[in-house]
């Protein structure tokens, strides 16, 4: 999902930075407020960041014959709300842009938008919806984080299609081409991300049920191991 350095026309690059910046700013503000109110959340915030660090470093081979990586941003969004992951995703993407030449400074806005804004919002929304229709906790986590991962890559495809519409078929034809690369590759990886997110939530539900209950993620009876 990393759009490479310089691979978005300047207008698009600036546009995505303008779209993402306010969300990152609000994320910093809301995280600051939350941590002030609950200083004990600081460690969990570290866990959310650490999870994104690991998952986005893992290039995993996929059935399409290419490799890609999970994002890990859905997990943190479920803990801290959708905007919280914007600044965390920014840190991870900055690390990769500066040290690994993965993604870039000019494409940072676009990459933050897909991985650290769209993904978290999708995770948050799908989770709320799944719990509303009373799906089990684990399944709700899986669906939320899995679809967050997929939507991140579809967003990247749309961003590239907007910047590079097909000369004959326009946006749609171009979107199909990019989505064919990203979405197909991503399908098993999205499932992996969903499974790993359930795994870490299982650990948290067992050892830190009181925090999850405070965050309205667990009801009391479900916390029993």
């Amino acid at each position: 999902m990393h759009i490479m350095e310089g691979f978005l026309p300047a207008g698009h690059a600036i546009g995505w930075i303008l779209v993402s910046a306010p969300v990152v700013a609000y994320g910093v503000y809301s995280l600051g407020k939350k941590v002030k109110k609950h200083p004990e959340y600081r460690m969990l915030l570290g866990v959310a960041a650490a999870f994104t660090f690991i998952l986005s470093a893992l290039k995993i081979p996929s059935v399409s014959g290419s490799s890609s990586h999970p994002t890990g941003t859905g997990f943190g969004a479920l803990l801290f709300g959708p905007t919280a992951m914007a600044p965390i995703g920014l840190v991870v993407l900055l690390f990769q842009a500066l040290l690994l030449a993965h993604g870039g400074i000019t494409t940072l806005g676009a990459n933050v938008f897909s991985m650290a804004i769209v993904g978290p919002f999708v995770a948050y929304g799908v989770f709320r919806l799944a719990r509303m229709v009373r799906l089990p906790f684990g399944l709700a986590i899986f669906l939320a984080t899995c679809s967050a991962n997929l939507m991140t890559y579809l967003t990247t495809s749309a961003q590239l299609a907007l910047a590079f519409p097909d000369p004959a078929g326009g946006f749609v034809a171009s979107f199909v081409k990019f989505a064919a690369i990203f979405a197909f590759t991503q399908l098993p990886l999205a499932i992996i991300e969903g499974l790993l997110s359930v795994l870490i939530f299982n650990a948290l539900a067992r050892f830190n049920p009181q925090e999850l209950r405070q965050m309205n993620l667990l009801q009391a009876p479900e916390a029993q191991p």
Binding site: M1, H2, I3, M4, F7, K59, P61, S62, S64, G65, S66, S67, S68, H102, T156, L160, F164, P165, D166, P167, S174, K177, F178, I181, F182, T185, Q186
Partner: peptide
Amino acid sequence: ETFTGADGEAMVVINQIA
């Protein structure tokens, strides 16, 4: 080369389109 990065493959498509 199999299992190259999808990010790089997207770059190839960009080169085809534009």
